[in-house]
């Protein structure tokens, strides 16, 4: 608790590794919260951990997890992408619209379009120096109008021959493929972050932008990359969603935007940037997905679900935010 140094010889460093151990402990908090949450609900409602139940959970949680992982990248740089749910929704609409043109390649085309759109968005934000919050809010409004226009505001069935959607909607070893897709995505992104300069630069930009800029980090290019990734992930999340619903709709992803922000923060990623990472995104996504069903599992009355969700999210954020690394809390 206290910061009073133990009265030891000043020449001998007191408690070596204390700070490191503390940091490691902090990093473990989100995981502990997740385990606690799952544990408590398993005690209250046994059967929640049965294979069938977990499979259902995976296919429901996968789109949210992918969104959270994608959103983490711009947030690491200190920006925010509010357009993710809009992109996820329009993905389904585009699938239907473009299927007659691109046939089996439609999914690939849609994801590429999303990457491009994200890159453009990041470029606009960084090059024109418009705050990301308002850039993506503007594009969110445009995206939702566009998907309503393209779909004529109706839900349409997907072409049933799409190989990629069928693959995503299927199971391997009785586990939904969307779960595996999430794992592959995390692995690929983790490799990029670990073994290229990009990962380091992203953190540098988030932790101290001015210093990073002065030391030659290419801001515009990096931000375009970050937003491209988050848009690409959003498109993947959209694909995962439609693989479950088999229908596209202009409002498919609905409030997943708010849940994805909650997810990013719950994993311990700082909204101000520079702190967190992919692993945090995974844990945060899982906690949020679990919170969403926990209110039902523990039998909260429907009128109380909003409050319980809000309060539990606040408590979880309180526990998982590492304030020692953030100077000013905005």
């Amino acid at each position: 608790m206290s910061h009073v140094q133990p009265a030891t010889d000043p020449l001998v460093p007191a408690k070596p590794g204390f700070a490191e151990r503390r940091a490691a402990l902090r990093r473990g908090v989100p995981l502990a919260v997740l385990i606690l949450l799952v544990g408590v609900s398993a005690i209250i409602a046994p059967g929640t951990l049965s294979p069938a139940a977990l499979n259902g959970f995976i296919s429901d949680a996968a789109p949210l997890m992918i969104l959270v992982i994608g959103s983490t990248i711009p947030i690491l740089t200190g920006s925010i992408d509010l357009s993710v749910a809009g992109i996820a929704s329009i993905t389904g609409v585009m699938l239907v619209v473009l299927a007659p043109i691109f046939g089996p390649w439609t999914c690939l085309v849609v994801v590429l379009l999303a990457l491009l759109f994200g890159a453009l968005q990041g470029w606009l934000h960084a090059w024109l120096q418009i705050p990301s919050f308002i850039t993506t809010l503007g594009t969110l409004s445009m995206l939702s109008g566009l998907s309503l226009l393209l779909s004529n505001a109706t839900a349409q069935p997907l072409p049933d021959s799409d190989p990629f959607i069928n693959l995503l909607g299927d199971t391997s070893f009785d586990i939904p493929n969307t779960g595996f897709a999430t794992l592959v995505l995390v692995a690929v992104l983790a490799l990029v972050m670990r073994y290229t300069r990009i990962g380091r630069d992203l953190f540098a930009l988030g932790a101290g932008e001015r210093a990073a800029l002065m030391s030659g980090v290419r801001n515009v290019r990096l931000r375009s990359f970050a937003f491209a990734i988050s848009a690409g992930c959003a498109a993947l999340a959209g694909l995962a969603l439609v693989s479950v619903t088999q229908f596209s709709s202009p409002t498919l992803a609905g409030n997943l935007l708010l849940l994805s922000i909650v997810g990013v923060v719950l994993g311990g990623t700082a909204i101000s940037g520079g702190v967190g990472g992919l692993w945090a995104g995974v844990i945060g996504g899982l906690i949020t997905a679990w919170l969403r069903v926990a209110t039902v599992l523990i039998g909260v009355k429907p009128t109380g679900q909003y409050i319980v969700f809000g309060v539990m999210a606040l408590i979880a954020v309180f526990l998982t935010t590492d304030r020692t690394k953030i100077g000013i809390i905005k």
Binding site: L258, I261, V262, V265, A270, I271, S272, T303, G304, Q305, Y306, I307, V308, F309, G310, V311, A313, L314, V317, F318, T321, R323, I329, K330
Partner: peptide
């Protein structure tokens, strides 16, 4: 409690709807 305003007010948004 030194929690970022974005997430605090997101939480209280839900709480308001809940009330």
């Amino acid at each position: 409690l030194r929690m970022p305003s974005l997430i605090v007010t997101l939480g209280t948004w839900f709480i308001g709807l809940g009330i």
